[in-house]
């Protein structure tokens, strides 16, 4: 019994210590913006690998999710004879929830795991150490561009996801099932508010982007430098990012949309 208590205590302490380490790591990364001349090309390269290369999976997922929403929405709403509200339903679901959340989950799986593995491997092969010994701070040179790239790419991906999803929903609802397209767009426009819905959705994805890339680069940087260490760090990235996104989504939703 005391053994278990002790183990629980140890686990709690190491969890708090790990949180503290990740906080210090974040501070070390963000303090001191990289030199603009060398920093921008590095940032562009990272936005490319984190954002542009995730575009395909985001577009395809967005399209299918939008189409499924169209089909499901139509079956349910046509029972009440209000299938014209389908546009409103699709747009609100995507812009407020599915856009930011699903994009963040895809991002964690596609880009976050790659980030962790890349940084973990750089650590294992002593590339980070050798950079330090060359008088270059790896936090600023390697970590900071990746963190910022995730932060910038995520909202862009989420917005593209929502647009493609709405287009997919329109494809199913208007083109196949014959909902009148004036009513489709009209209902959508009268119910979606730019600031309350669209901007709040973007804020959500900015938060998710930050948290996901933070977790990914931290797990890579903090991993045990062996192949088993990298694999467990990659798993942790996906698991922690997904949980963090879903948990934060609840909190953010409660704050943004909870007052009615």
């Amino acid at each position: 019994m005391t053994d278990r208590l002790a183990a629980l205590g140890r686990f709690g302490l190491s969890a708090i210590a790990s949180l503290g380490r990740s906080g210090r790591f974040l501070a070390g990364t963000l303090i001191g913006v990289p030199k603009p001349l060398t920093g921008l090309p590095l940032l562009a390269r990272q936005i490319y690998s984190v954002g542009v290369l995730s575009l395909a999976i985001v577009v395809v997922s967005g399209l299918f999710i939008g189409m499924v929403l169209g089909l499901q929405g139509y079956t349910i709403l046509s029972d009440f004879g209000s299938e014209a509200a389908i546009g409103q339903m699709i747009a609100l679901t995507l812009v407020r929830e599915l856009g930011p959340v699903v994009t963040a989950l895809l991002f964690a799986g596609r880009a976050g795991s790659a980030l962790t593995a890349e940084i973990g491997l750089m650590k294992t092969t002593e590339q980070l150490s050798s950079m330090e010994m060359m008088g270059v701070d790896p936090l600023r040179r390697v970590i900071a561009p990746r963190l910022w790239a995730g932060f910038i790419a995520m909202p862009i991906l989420a917005v593209i996801f929502s647009v493609v999803g709405i287009w997919g929903g329109m494809l199913v609802g208007v083109e196949w099932l014959g909902v009148f397209d004036g009513a489709f767009w009209g209902n959508m426009q009268s119910s979606v508010d730019f600031v309350d819905d669209v901007i709040n959705g973007v804020i959500k994805s900015v938060v998710f982007g930050f948290v996901c890339s933070w977790i990914a680069v931290y797990q890579g940087y903090d991993c045990v430098p062996t192949s088993a260490g990298i694999s467990s760090a990659t798993t942790k990235t996906v698991v922690y990012s997904s949980l963090a996104v879903l948990g934060l989504d609840f909190v953010l939703t409660a704050v943004m949309f909870g007052n009615f």
Partner: peptide, 23 residues
């Protein structure tokens, strides 16, 4: 390509603003 990616993001936001929320 990265520049185009960011423009695509802006365009998507513009679409959400004009066509979806009717701003």
């Amino acid at each position: 390509i990265v520049g185009l990616f960011m423009i695509a993001g802006l365009a998507a936001l513009l679409f959400l603003a004009l066509q979806v929320s009717g701003l």
